[in-house]
Computed example of a mutant assay.
Amino acid sequence: MDAAWVPLLLSLKVAGWATALNLFLGVGVGFALARWRFPGRELLDAVLTLPMVLPPTVLGYYLLVLIGKHGPLGAWLLDNFGIQLIFTWQGAVIAATLVAFPLVLKSARAAFEGVDPQLERAARVLGLGEWAVFFRVSLPMAWRGILAGLLLAFARALGEFGATLMVAGSIPGRTQTLSVAVYEAVQAGQDDSANFLVLITSLTCVLVLLSAGRLAPARPLV
């Protein structure tokens, strides 16, 4: 059972990095979609939400085409910096970030749309700049919804399987995340290991979901 903790720690590492990246990407894009009006805004929102509904293997294929050693981004990174993302834990982070991104985007956009624009205008009238308005008015009023979305994204990244397997593979101790380890244990007939991995995965996700539920904005009684 000691070997079961290795994929757990790797999964926590991957999910942590993916959540941190989505903190900046999802919150930034969510705020832009909530506050800016431009042609094609809803189309952009739909495109960015695609990872939520597309099969993970399709997302994995897109990533292989993009960041593989023959892909446009992958070839550029390899030729200029000697960086190869396929079959690395960094590749797993990219896959988990892409899959979990819509959860942060949707939560952030809804949270910012729930902030009264009049409060932001009043702050500007009082002399605050745009960055000050964001950090002193908009973000403090939207943080609960954003944090709930981040927790959901963490849980989603923690359980990511399809895209991660295609991009990072299943190298024990290097790229084998918790969900991939469960698959490998079942395939190998190691029922005890599979049961233990499923148990700790389920407990971790339940704790995260309970935390997200407590942080979600309270609904009005009437």
Rank of each mutant, 00 (worst) to 15 (best):
F134E: 01
L50K: 02
L152I: 14
G169I: 01
A111H: 12
R156T: 08
D79T: 14
I83D: 02
V93K: 06
R124C: 06
G129V: 14
A148H: 07
G145M: 06
F87V: 11
G74T: 07
G71T: 09
F134I: 12
E120C: 08
L59Q: 03
A46S: 14
I94Q: 02
L126Q: 13
L73P: 04
Q84T: 15
L158R: 04
G82S: 07
I94A: 05
L78G: 03
L54I: 02
L54E: 01
F135R: 15
I83L: 15
I67A: 06
M141A: 14
L103P: 13
S107R: 08
L98H: 02
T97F: 11
A108W: 08
V99E: 00
V99S: 01
A122R: 01
L151A: 10
L85E: 04
P117E: 04
L78P: 00
W89Y: 12
D79A: 14
V125M: 12
G60E: 00
L152K: 03
G71W: 05
T88A: 09
F135V: 13
N80A: 13
P102H: 04
M141E: 06
P51K: 01
T49I: 11
A142Y: 10
S170T: 14
Y62H: 03
H70V: 13
P56Q: 03
A110M: 05
P102C: 09
L50P: 07
I86T: 12
P72I: 13
L158I: 10
N80S: 14
P55N: 02
